[in-house]
Measured scan of single mutants.
Amino acid sequence: MQRVNMIMAESPGLITICLLGYLLSAECTVFLDHENANKILNRPKRYNSGKLEEFVQGNLERECMEEKCSFEEAREVFENTERTTEFWKQYVDGDQCESNPCLNGGSCKDDINSYECWCPFGFEGKNCELDVTCNIKNGRCEQFCKNSADNKVVCSCTEGYRLAENQKSCEPAVPFPCGRVSVSQTSKLTRAETVFPDVDYVNSTEAETILDNITQSTQSFNDFTRVVGGEDAKPGQFPWQVVLNGKVDAFCGGSIVNEKWIVTAAHCVETGVKITVVAGEHNIEETEHTEQKRNVIRIIPHHNYNAAINKYNHDIALLELDEPLVLNSYVTPICIADKEYTNIFLKFGSGYVSGWGRVFHKGRSALVLQYLRVPLVDRATCLRSTKFTIYNNMFCAGFHEGGRDSCQGDSGGPHVTEVEGTSFLTGIISWGEECAMKGKYGIYTKVSRYVNWIKEKTKLT
């Protein structure tokens, strides 16, 4: 034993070699072989497995989906700052455009905790909710729209109204504003409101030439003092309507412009014939205590009207009353817009006519005020429907199939267009061939041609 100890002390290297040989010859039971080890760690190889990531292109799944990435790591994937920024906006807080917040056709661009709407022409605001041009839906104005110097929408209202708090709607500024039905039992019968379409306001006024200088022999019209197929109006439903009495009662109609003036057809009036105007009328054979009678003290036909040349060209006249009318729910003026808007309103496509005229061709006159909704007829169809001249200051309205029309005794009465609950004068009943005849239409004086003249002559002093 002493000898062994001496050998170990003198030859430590020998001992180490012996131990190493023993270990190498022993069977290893701690580690699995290569094949079995792979069965336990069965993990798919990654895209760049075996390579240094710093030297390969980034992978979106590896960089940002398996674990949260930084902007720089995302930049490695896209290799483009702009594309990385677009991805980053949604990656950080989701897609803010998912709810489609942009209105009126706006395009949404996502941002971090926010979004941006790219608005089409005519709109602005956070969600493109603000109209900035009158060309689109009248700028959301209830009545009139004008573009300011910086191309912003400025709404306005006709006389007797003021802008509401929203700067879009119009509200009454006087007790009985024009064009409004205020009798409670008839307010439910107000005709369907007309909503502004998209309009090209630059070209809204037709490029028409008034044929002022045409000389033409007097034409022989049949029954051209021209509501057939209409309905009984309720008291106060058309408070701007008046009836004219002269040699015979209810020979023509008219509309209240203001307390002192009536507008009617020029062919209705004769110099030297006494005319009485009755406002607030409903049943011409009954006294309903809503009527107001006034005498006409002055007749002003349009300066281009000449019955000797043509009885229905420039067929418009103004009547001055001896005493002002007292405005109330049964006696209310009709609204008159400017030339541009009167023309736009007419193009809405349908209007209402009213009167006490004959209820059928050569038949009896109506006792109760009649009204009828009539569609506008395109000019080409209008011209083809008659052998008589249709001037540019006239328009056609009615039904091709016949059966409904204005008729004798309705002449001078109103053709009105309702705009968001307020009625505007767009025409004056003038003439036609018979009444409600198939293929024939009622012919009306186009008020847009005469609004400046009306307003100039009827100013209240």
Rank of each mutant, 00 (worst) to 15 (best):
L23W: 08
L19A: 05
K347S: 14
E401Q: 12
H361K: 13
L14K: 03
A308T: 10
F121G: 15
W118M: 15
R46F: 07
V377T: 05
V242Y: 01
V278M: 07
D315K: 00
E54W: 06
A207H: 12
S220D: 13
D322W: 02
I136M: 10
W356F: 12
L346C: 02
L19K: 02
R75N: 15
N258K: 02
F176G: 02
H415N: 00
Y305A: 02
F87R: 15
F87S: 15
C141P: 01
V257R: 01
F123Q: 03
G58S: 11
S411F: 11
W261N: 01
V92S: 13
A337W: 00
G409K: 13
R384N: 09
G106L: 00
V154R: 09
N313A: 12
I40L: 12
N166Q: 03
C396A: 01
E27A: 08
P44G: 11
L103P: 01
C268S: 00
V377G: 02
E231V: 11
Q90M: 10
C117L: 00
G179N: 02
D110E: 06
C268K: 01
I297W: 03
Q370A: 04
E72V: 15
K293R: 14
F196N: 14
H303M: 08
E159M: 07
T225D: 14
K293A: 06
G246A: 09
D200S: 11
E27P: 02
E259Y: 04
G398Y: 04
N306E: 05
A265K: 00
M437C: 09
I136F: 14
C108V: 01
T225A: 09
F31C: 08
T389P: 14
N5S: 13
R373Y: 07
D410F: 10
R140V: 04
K339E: 13
I300T: 04
T461D: 14
N283H: 11
T332I: 08
Y47S: 13
H282I: 09
M65V: 15
K126G: 06
T133Y: 04
N80S: 15
V416H: 05
E208I: 12
Y161Q: 02
T264M: 02
N166K: 02
K234F: 14
C155Y: 00
L318K: 00
V174H: 07
Q2L: 14
I309T: 07
C335M: 01
I40S: 03
S11N: 10
E323M: 13
V242F: 00
D110N: 09
L460Y: 14
G427P: 01
E270M: 08
N135D: 15
R83D: 15
T332Q: 04
P197G: 09
V359L: 14
P375A: 14
S99Q: 08
K347D: 08
V277G: 01
G179E: 01
P175N: 09
N258L: 00
P172E: 05
T417H: 02
N138T: 03
S11E: 05
G50E: 05
G253D: 04
N127C: 02
R358H: 13
P414Y: 06
Y450M: 02
F399K: 05
I112R: 07
E231G: 11
M6E: 06
M394W: 07
E285N: 07
E270N: 12
S411P: 11
R298M: 03
E142D: 09
H303S: 08
I112V: 13
V269R: 02
D198E: 11
C157M: 01
V199H: 11
N48T: 15
G125K: 00
G230M: 07
Q237M: 09
L23H: 03
N80H: 08
D249F: 05
V269M: 08
K339M: 13
S187H: 07
L24V: 09
S182M: 10
Y47D: 09
V273I: 07
G439R: 10
A307W: 09
T16Q: 08
F348N: 14
F87N: 15
L130F: 10
K455H: 14
T85N: 07
E61Q: 15
H314N: 12
E323P: 04
I15M: 10
R358V: 06
F360E: 15
C117E: 01
K274I: 06
C252I: 01
G421E: 06
R191H: 07
D93M: 05
C382W: 02
Y330S: 03
N328H: 03
G106K: 00
D93K: 05
G105L: 03
M6Y: 09
D150T: 10
I334N: 00
R83Q: 15
L460I: 07
D249T: 13
Y450V: 01
R384L: 09
G125I: 00
N328V: 00
I112S: 07
V326S: 11
R62K: 04
L425I: 04
E171Q: 11
V269Q: 03
E286P: 06
E67C: 04
R373W: 04
N310F: 04
C117I: 00
F424P: 01
T386A: 12
A26Q: 02
V447A: 09
G254E: 00
W240M: 01
G349S: 08
I275L: 11
V353K: 04
F360Y: 14
V326P: 02
E165S: 11
G409I: 08
E72I: 15
G280R: 02
Q370I: 03
T287E: 14
G160N: 06
D150F: 07
A265S: 09
C119N: 02
N138G: 03
T386N: 11
S169Q: 08
R404H: 15
D95E: 04
Q96P: 06
G363E: 14
S255D: 01
K274V: 07
Q57L: 05
T194E: 12
K347L: 07
G351M: 02
I390C: 04
I112F: 11
N310C: 05
A37F: 03
P101C: 00
R294S: 02
E73L: 06
T158Q: 10
F176E: 02
T422E: 02
H314C: 03
P239F: 01
K455L: 09
V419K: 04
S430W: 03
I300Y: 06
E456S: 13
N245C: 04
V263S: 01
V277I: 12
I275G: 03
N328G: 08
E76P: 15
V278I: 05
V326F: 07
Q57K: 09
N310K: 05
T218D: 07
G246I: 04
I214V: 12
N452L: 05
E270A: 12
F221D: 13
V174Q: 08
E340P: 08
K168M: 12
V199T: 12
T290K: 05
C178F: 00
S114N: 09
G236C: 02
I300A: 03
H289M: 10
I210V: 12
V56C: 04
V451G: 04
T386H: 10
E73R: 09
V353L: 05
V242D: 00
L103D: 06
A266P: 01
K438S: 14
N166A: 02
A266E: 02
E456M: 12
E35Q: 12
I256E: 00
L14Q: 03
C268E: 01
Y91R: 11
I299Y: 09
S423G: 13
R294C: 00
S99P: 09
R43A: 14
I136H: 15
L321D: 00
P414G: 12
N393I: 01
V227Q: 07
C108M: 00
I428D: 01
C170Q: 00
S365Q: 14
I336M: 07
Y391Q: 14
A265I: 01
L24P: 03
K438A: 07
E76S: 15
I297E: 05
E76N: 15
Q408K: 13
T81W: 04
S365G: 06
K168H: 12
N135K: 09
A26I: 10
F144T: 00
K68Q: 14
G236V: 05
V269G: 04
L163S: 03
T215Y: 09
G432D: 12
S430V: 14
S99A: 06
E288G: 06
Y352C: 06
A173C: 05
L130G: 05
P235A: 10
I40D: 03
W118Y: 11
C145I: 01
E231D: 10
D198Y: 08
T422K: 07
C108T: 00
Y441H: 06
V331K: 00
Y91P: 08
I136K: 08
H289L: 07
S204T: 08
S70C: 04
N48Y: 10
G125A: 02
V195L: 12
R449K: 06
T194M: 13
F395E: 00
N393W: 05
V263G: 00
K168R: 12
T215S: 11
T290R: 10
N245R: 11
N5R: 09
L425E: 00
T194C: 04
R358C: 04
E129K: 02
E286V: 08
F87V: 15
S430Y: 02
I299F: 08
K68V: 10
R358W: 07
I136N: 14
